[in-house]
Amino acid sequence: MVKRNIRLSSPEIGGLWGVYIQETMSICLLKYFLHHLQDNEIKPILQKSLHLSQTHINQIEDIFSKENIPLPDGFTHKDINLSAPPLFYDLFALSFVYSMNRMGMVNLGFATSTVARADVLDFFTHALNQTTELYAESTNLMLSKGIYDRPPMITYPEKVEYVKKQSYIVAAVGKKRPLNAVELTEIFFNIERNYFAVLLCMGLLQVVKDKEIKNYIKNGMNLSEKQINFFNDLLKKEDLLGTVPVSMEVTNSTVSPFSDKLIVALFHFLNSIDVTLIGHALSLSMRLDLATYYSKLIGEILAYAEKGFNIMVNRQWLEQPPQAPDRKSLKEM
């Protein structure tokens, strides 16, 4: 049988390119956390996460090399300062692995569904399985340490029911049906995701000196706090307990462990995944008040993300993804 030389498709090139950038960023952050980490229960999970990120980098380098595709610059040792004092306590490092792998499962799941070439599909399938395994390990350790806040509980259904009235979506004035299990899930994880973002912002605001970037982080923190307050108030109105954060305090360090470029790029990534997850929540919400809020929120996050995009472009920090040739220009040459 003749072996065909199948070229990489645009989703395969774009998917690998994106993972490469994200993994170089993760390596910087994980190396910094590990440099200061004292907890011997948390350390193995971070070491495993770092090893997997480095393995993924090597695999992508091999694929791109065979295809003569230039590697992105990504992030390097120049983007971390290991001599800076610890900015976060050990529990935040565990929360970081949990949060990044939870979001990683979403990104890798999308990418896996768009690729076909055997070696690329194999890469994404294994990466998704490894990310899921790390998510499970970090979740179990958070549970054992008492820092995993479980989602709201509801009574088990006793029978199968069908929606009988339009008011299931559009409630009469002053009368809204109780939240269903799917809606509660999205609300809980939105709150959890934004508590992580608030802690991240609190730490970075102490160390960032650049006024434009500092204001950008402050705006991001305000946006996260706004979401937390809205959804906690909603849960309380439904006679459900609001989500209370477990204290994972930031240290008093004022020395930045990360380059400004890495910090803004991290926010750029978090904004991207946040829009994806809120869009998912919007698609599942069957109450008009929720759908309306999610729609408005997507617009606010996109407006905020544009500010970060402009900072990166103006400072020449944003690498351009591989793109199709300009056929019109080629025809005119």
Rank of each mutant, 00 (worst) to 15 (best):
L318H: 05
M25K: 13
K66Y: 01
K261Q: 15
G74R: 06
L199K: 01
S9Q: 09
S272Y: 08
R315A: 04
K176Q: 13
H56W: 11
K218S: 09
F309I: 03
I273C: 09
F92S: 02
K211I: 02
A281W: 03
G14P: 02
G74M: 06
L52W: 10
M312S: 07
F230V: 05
G220S: 04
L297C: 05
N219G: 11
D239E: 11
L266S: 01
V275Q: 10
T243H: 10
K159Q: 12
Y195F: 15
A305P: 03
G242D: 11
L52D: 14
F124G: 13
L266R: 00
F196V: 06
V97Q: 04
D73H: 09
V182N: 11
I311G: 06
R102K: 14
D233I: 00
L141T: 10
A181R: 11
I45P: 03
K261A: 15
S224F: 00
L71I: 04
I27L: 02
S113D: 15
V160K: 13
H35Q: 10
Y293D: 09
M142W: 05
L270T: 11
F96S: 07
F92Q: 02
N58H: 07
N232M: 04
F196T: 02
R315T: 04
S113N: 12
S65I: 01
K211T: 09
Y294L: 08
K218L: 06
M142S: 11
N129C: 09
F196I: 06
V97P: 03
S259V: 07
M333P: 01
E67F: 06
K214W: 00
I60Y: 10
V173T: 15
P11F: 03
Q323I: 05
S259C: 14
L46I: 03
P157M: 13
V244K: 09
N68E: 14
N219M: 03
S224P: 01
I63W: 06
I298L: 13
L184P: 06
C201E: 01
T139Q: 12
Y293T: 08
T254D: 12
Y98G: 03
P321R: 04
H280E: 09
M286G: 09
L141H: 10
E61T: 08
T251N: 12
S167H: 09
Q47E: 15
L108Q: 10
